[in-house]
Amino acid sequence: MTQWSAKSTVDSVRMPFLKSMLFAIPPWQEQTTILDQIDASLARTTKISEATEQSVGRLKEYRSALITAAVTGQIDVATWGKQGQPDRRLDEIEEAMRA
């Protein structure tokens, strides 16, 4: 198609050329099968995207709660990271966020 495209600022293909072209079109059943596969793929992608967005939102909330807990003295920042696990207060904050 590029060899017959109209050269100007942007390459384009004119309608008369398109009308003269032959296109292979699969049978209706095959088109339906392809569409079903695209729909299933889109549904999976949408579900993953929504779950990811929810996780990011929860992580932002958790980060904000963690900062608040550190600023208000509810956790000791100097020792919290060395404990290897969050203290009881962070567990409570996380549990409250799930509710």
Rank of each mutant, 00 (worst) to 15 (best):
residue 84 G to M: 02
residue 1 M to W: 14
residue 52 T to C: 07
residue 5 S to W: 15
residue 22 L to Y: 07
residue 13 V to E: 02
residue 49 S to A: 15
residue 22 L to P: 01
residue 79 T to N: 08
residue 71 V to P: 00
residue 48 I to T: 10
residue 69 A to K: 05
residue 39 D to H: 03
residue 86 P to Y: 04
residue 86 P to N: 05
residue 88 R to N: 04
residue 54 Q to C: 09
residue 78 A to K: 02
residue 71 V to N: 04
residue 88 R to H: 11
residue 18 L to I: 15
residue 3 Q to C: 06
residue 10 V to Y: 06
residue 79 T to I: 09
residue 68 T to L: 07
residue 76 D to Q: 07
residue 33 T to Q: 12
residue 53 E to D: 12
residue 36 D to N: 14
residue 91 D to N: 06
residue 96 A to I: 00
residue 54 Q to P: 03
residue 15 M to E: 11
residue 14 R to F: 03
residue 61 E to L: 15
residue 52 T to G: 06
residue 12 S to Y: 05
residue 12 S to Q: 06
residue 36 D to F: 11
residue 81 G to R: 07
residue 14 R to P: 00
residue 87 D to I: 03
residue 56 V to D: 12
residue 6 A to Y: 09
residue 53 E to W: 14
residue 88 R to G: 00
residue 12 S to W: 04
residue 99 A to N: 05
residue 9 T to F: 11
residue 44 R to P: 01
residue 55 S to L: 14
residue 41 S to W: 01
residue 17 F to C: 00
residue 15 M to T: 09
residue 36 D to L: 09
residue 68 T to Y: 15
residue 97 M to D: 01
residue 68 T to Q: 12
residue 44 R to D: 15
residue 39 D to Y: 04
residue 89 R to Y: 15
residue 52 T to K: 14
residue 28 W to R: 14
residue 70 A to H: 02
residue 93 I to F: 08
residue 43 A to N: 09
residue 29 Q to Y: 07
residue 60 K to Q: 13
residue 54 Q to I: 13
residue 13 V to P: 03
residue 50 E to Y: 10
residue 36 D to P: 01
residue 41 S to L: 13
residue 15 M to N: 10
residue 15 M to Q: 10
residue 14 R to C: 02
residue 94 E to D: 04
residue 14 R to W: 01
residue 53 E to M: 13
residue 5 S to D: 03
residue 34 I to H: 09
residue 39 D to C: 07
residue 61 E to T: 14
residue 12 S to I: 06
residue 8 S to Q: 06
residue 44 R to F: 01
residue 49 S to P: 02
residue 90 L to E: 00
residue 19 K to F: 10
residue 95 E to P: 00
residue 34 I to M: 13
residue 35 L to W: 11
residue 15 M to W: 09
residue 52 T to H: 14
residue 32 T to W: 12
residue 34 I to A: 12
residue 94 E to K: 11
residue 44 R to L: 08
residue 20 S to Y: 02
residue 68 T to M: 05
residue 71 V to L: 08
residue 55 S to Y: 01
residue 92 E to V: 02
residue 70 A to P: 04
residue 95 E to Y: 09
residue 75 I to G: 03
residue 65 A to E: 12
residue 27 P to L: 08
residue 68 T to C: 05
residue 68 T to P: 00
residue 1 M to I: 14
residue 40 A to T: 08
residue 47 K to P: 03
